[in-house]
């Protein structure tokens, strides 16, 4: 075989030298690249518990692999199936086939006589699929599942999480103000049936903010936001905005004591906030309207 342009690679000693150099390079490179410790990424989970934690940390493919491969007792099969379906919704790349496969698993878990956790989770996810994954969405089917959850599993946090979604689905449709008014009235009863604190909080927050968004009723907006605040709001962004909304609505409704209390709450907890100075001025104006210009009011 002729070597290119006069290089002496046809001589065995050069070939051996080149091969040896390459081998040394490969060994050095491999030993350097091969992680000496635990590796930079997370270890793939091996248990169902680890798989759920991986799913919570956005490691969807790892979690799905574990749900598929873990060795289990027969009693854990429904949990495995649920885990497979939940992670299939976001296994990358996300495909229509995976969503359809997930839906079939949820339907199987939901259809039996069992009213266990996998069945409750499955009903919730079927609602979500009809609401968010189908093109076009099928809100009626989604609503059916959300209602089923609320009727059969009151007091379960996953079941009651759907209540806040039902509020959004019903009120943010492109409908007439009259129809929206009817829907507001229909949804008012929902709050009384909720047993979990998180369910009540998110329901009241969405109702209160929808009353504000559609300028439907200041009084009802205020009552819902107060009810939400009574359940303890866990995110500071939501808490600070809700406290300001309560104070502003209370001021407009002539409930100055309530407005003052919420302005003060905001000022004492959220000192490092771009709204702090403006709220200070609003509180000042509440006590003496001359402290503020007409525009600020």
């Amino acid at each position: 075989m002729k070597t290119p342009r006069g290089l002496p690679f046809n001589r065995p000693r050069y070939q051996i030298a080149a091969a040896a150099a390459l081998a040394v390079g490969l060994v050095a490179g491999w030993s350097h690249i091969k992680p000496s410790g635990d590796g930079a990424g997370t270890k793939r989970p091996t248990t169902l518990e680890g798989a759920w934690q991986a799913a919570a940390a956005f490691l969807f493919n790892d979690a799905n692999n574990t749900f598929n491969a873990a060795r289990l007792e027969p009693s854990q099969e429904r949990e495995r199936e649920l885990g497979k379906a939940v992670t299939l919704l976001n296994v990358q790349p996300r495909t229509v086939e995976n969503i359809a496969k997930a839906r079939r698993i949820f339907e199987t878990l939901s259809s039996g006589e069992d009213h266990d956790e996998p069945a409750i989770f499955s009903d919730y996810y079927l609602a979500r699929i009809y609401e968010r994954y189908e093109t076009p969405p099928e809100p009626r089917k989604a609503r059916t599942y959300y209602l089923k959850l609320l009727e059969k599993h009151a007091g379960h946090p996953v079941a009651e999480f759907g209540a806040s979604a039902m509020v959004l689905m019903a009120l943010y449709d492109n409908i007439t103000p009259e129809e929206r008014g009817r829907r507001f009235a229909g949804l008012e009863a929902l709050g009384a049936s909720l047993e979990t604190s998180s369910g009540r909080r998110d329901y009241h927050l969405n109702m209160g903010n929808a009353y504000i968004d559609f300028e439907a009723s200041r009084e009802k907006a205020l009552n819902h936001l107060l009810a939400a605040d009574a359940e303890t709001i866990s995110l500071w962004q939501v808490e600070s905005a809700t406290w300001i909304s309560i104070a502003e609505l209370a001021r407009d409704e002539g409930r100055d004591d309530l407005a003052e209390a919420y302005y003060k709450r905001f000022l004492s907890k959220y000192r490092r906030d771009n709204r702090h100075y403006s709220i200070e001025r609003r509180l000042g104006a509440l006590k003496n309207p001359k402290n503020m210009t007409a525009d600020e009011r």
């Binding site: 919570a56 969807f60 979690a63 992670t87 919704l89 976001n90």
Partner: peptide, 18 residues
């Protein structure tokens, strides 16, 4: 974000309820 959070919710809710 909403779709991604669905799977995350499953992980968090199952862990908390278990």
């Amino acid at each position: 974000i909403s779709q991604r959070s669905d799977t995350q919710f499953g992980g968090l809710a199952w862990t908390a309820l278990a």
